[in-house]
C-alpha cells in the first residue's frame, strides 16, 4: 500500500522543546488522528511537513516527494486547515477566491462556489465576521477546490461547537470516499477521531507514543480498577499512570498483560481519551519518584 505521508526519524530541537525521532506513515485512502496534549509537538510536526519549520534530521515524504526539495509540488496538491483563519479578514469569499485562484494549476472556481453554497457561507460578507465553524469550512472549501489529495488539519475543532464539529466529520467522511486521498487530523478532542479515524498516532513530549490502526490501539489497552493490595507484584511494574485513592486504584494496562489477572480486579476497554490521561499521569508519576 502506497503511503501518502511518511515521516522517518524526524528530529527538531528548539530551546525549550524538541521532536525526537518522530516516525509514522499514513497509507493512501485513510484518515489518521494525530493526538496528544497541547505542547506534545503536533503543530511542530505539521510545520515540518509544510517546510515551515526546518528539520534538523530525518525525512518527510508527501505523495512520495521530499518535503524540503519538492515543497512547491507538494503544496500544489495539499490542503491545510489551521485553527485560525489566515486570510485577510476584510475581504469576502468572492475576493478571496480571486486572490487564491492563480496559485493553483487545478483551481476550480465552480467547485469552490458549489462548496460555499453547500456549506451555507455567504459570499458577500467579510470573512472576518464569520463564526469559527464558518472559517473552518471556508478553509476546507479552499482545499477541496484545488483538488487536494491530502488534507492536513491542525486543531480545527478547538473552540468549535458540537454542530460544527459534526459537520466537519461529515465533510471528511465524504472526502475520504475517494480512496486516493488522505487526511491527517491533529486534535486534542479525541472524540472527533474516535469514530472516523482509521489510524491514530499519539505524540507525547515530542515522541511517538503509539502509531497504528485505531482498533489496534483500543484493543491493546484496558483500564484496570480494584483494590491496591490485589495487584500481583509482577503486574504493578506494567501499570501505566497508576493512580491510587482511598478505596482503590485505577491504571492503564496493556491487554497482553491481562493474563492471570486476579478476579478481584476489573478491567474495561480504554478510550483514546483515557489513554491520553494515563500517559500524562504516568509522566507526572515518574517526575515525582
Amino acid at each position: 500500500m502506497e503511503n501518502i505521508l511518511e515521516i522517518n526519524g524526524l528530529c527538531k530541537a528548539y530551546d525549550d522543546f524538541s521532536l525526537k525521532d518522530v516516525s509514522f506513515s499514513l497509507p493512501r485512502g485513510f484518515i489518521m488522528g494525530f493526538v496528544g496534549e497541547n505542547g506534545s509537538g503536533k503543530t511542530t510536526t505539521i510545520r515540518s511537513i509544510l517546510n515551515m519549520a526546518k528539520i534538523d534530521s530525518g525525512k518527510i515524504s508527501v505523495f512520495g516527494l521530499d518535503s524540503v526539495t519538492d515543497t512547491i509540488a507538494i503544496k500544489e496538491r495539499l490542503g491545510v486547515v489551521f485553527d485560525s483563519l489566515y486570510l485577510a479578514e476584510h475581504l469576502n469569499v468572492k475576493q478571496i477566491e480571486q486572490q487564491l485562484k492563480p496559485f493553483y494549476k487545478d483551481w476550480n472556481s465552480e467547485e469552490f462556489f458549489r462548496r460555499i453554497g453547500e456549506f451555507d457561507l455567504p459570499d458577500n460578507r467579510k470573512v472576518g465576521d464569520f463564526s469559527k465553524g464558518m472559517k473552518m469550512k471556508l478553509m476546507i472549501a479552499i482545499a477541496l477546490s484545488h483538488k487536494a489529495e491530502l488534507i492536513i488539519l491542525d486543531e480545527p475543532t478547538s473552540g468549535l461547537d458540537p454542530v460544527a464539529r459534526d459537520e466537519l466529520l461529515d465533510i471528511l467522511s465524504e472526502y475520504i470516499e475517494d480512496e486516493n486521498r488522505g487526511v491527517l487530523f491533529s486534535t486534542h478532542i479525541t472524540a472527533d477521531v474516535e469514530r472516523i479515524a482509521d489510524y491514530v498516532t499519539i505524540l507525547h513530549n515530542g515522541k511517538v507514543w503509539f502509531t497504528g490502526t485505531k482498533d489496534e490501539l483500543t484493543e491493546s489497552y484496558a483500564v484496570i480498577k480494584g483494590a491496591e493490595e490485589d495487584i500481583p507484584a509482577a503486574l504493578k511494574e506494567k501499570l501505566i499512570g497508576f493512580h491510587a485513592y482511598r478505596n482503590g486504584f485505577d491504571a492503564l494496562i496493556k491487554t497482553d498483560d491481562l493474563a492471570g489477572l486476579p478476579d478481584t480486579l476489573e478491567y474495561e476497554k480504554a478510550s483514546i481519551d483515557e489513554i491520553l490521561v494515563y500517559i500524562a499521569k504516568e509522566e507526572k508519576h515518574e517526575r515525582h519518584s
Binding site: 485512502g29 485513510f30 484518515i31 466529520l169 461529515d170 467522511s173 465524504e174 475520504i176 470516499e177 469514530r195 472516523i196 479515524a197 482509521d198 489510524y199 490502526t213 485505531k214 482498533d215
Partner: peptide, 8 residues
C-alpha cells in the same frame, strides 16, 4: 461515509 466511521 454514511455511518461516519472509519474505513478500516
Amino acid at each position: 461515509r454514511d455511518l461516519k466511521i472509519s474505513v478500516i
